[in-house]
Amino acid sequence: MRPFTFTKVRNSAVAVKEISEKEEAKFIAGGTNLLDLMKFDVMIPKNIIDITGIALNYIKNLEDGGLRLGALVTNSDTAYHKEVENRYPLLSHAILAGASPQLRNKATDAGNLLQRTRCYYFYDPATPCNKREPGSGCSAIHGYNRWHAIFGASEKCIATHPSDMCVALAALEAKVNVTGPNGERNIPFEDFHRLPGDHPEKDTNLSKDEIITSIDLPANGFAENFSYIKNRDRASYSFALVSIAVGLEMKGNKIKEARIVLGGVAHKPWRNKEAEAFLNNKEANRENFEAVADVIVREAKGYEYNKFKIELARRSVVRALMQAAKIEE
């Protein structure tokens, strides 16, 4: 690890001030990804601002029936929180599908949103990577890309966002509350993460001098009809090859509203609203689910080692929808 200055702050305003004033500064809370990357010499912040002293470790009900997750609540505390378990089981399941208990006990909700890709090349400073070092090239496009994106990639980067939690948050249409020098704003979840485009070094639309203070979950948690499926290389403690979060609003056997978000397949949680709309007012059955899965994978593009993800994604979407609709075969 390279040297850095260390400052501890007690409130968000000071945190914003510190990060605005300091060069190459980073917030630290759980630290589970930042320190990992600092030790690999991938991230080299000169200033570290410890935000764990800010009072953002809470979960509370919102007036609109939603739930607010403080930025500093750990992934474990979120997943096992009674309100989350009961009203947002999709979120709980997704969180518990990620990482390990030890990591979830330390990693925070805001930190989960900000974790970096697990692309082999991003992690290895001996190889070119546009995300780590803009302009150096992408080693994955013609390299070992089994873990990489099939949606929304660019010629500059085919990395994926590794989070499970974010896949569920995207499906739930969460909002990310942030504070910056110009005050507070909230970012709809689908706008929070970016596609790589020409600037893969930017993972999110959060400004450098902003801090995430909380995440709001809307009232509808799709607690009745949901599914989270995670395909991965071992049964636990590994990142998704393809994951699927599904939430359905059903009336009888009819679908009123569908949310389908894929993880491990793009630079951000991958949602296809056109496909979701296709299911509106349709019967919940395999035929319709197959059809919607076809729509979702239509625009997928595979590379040498990850082509299988396209068919795996298609089948997983069908399976997740069947599970969410509680259709036994």
Binding site: I28, D36, D50
Partner: peptide, 27 residues
């Protein structure tokens, strides 16, 4: 591993298990 990928460094911090390799003592 020194990167939270193996669990060998697990300790109980205020009763909770964590990877001690991925947290700064100063915190």
């Amino acid at each position: 591993c020194d990167h939270g990928q193996c669990g060998a460094c697990t300790v109980l911090m205020d009763g909770t298990r964590i990877n001690s390799c991925l947290t700064l003592a100063v915190m």
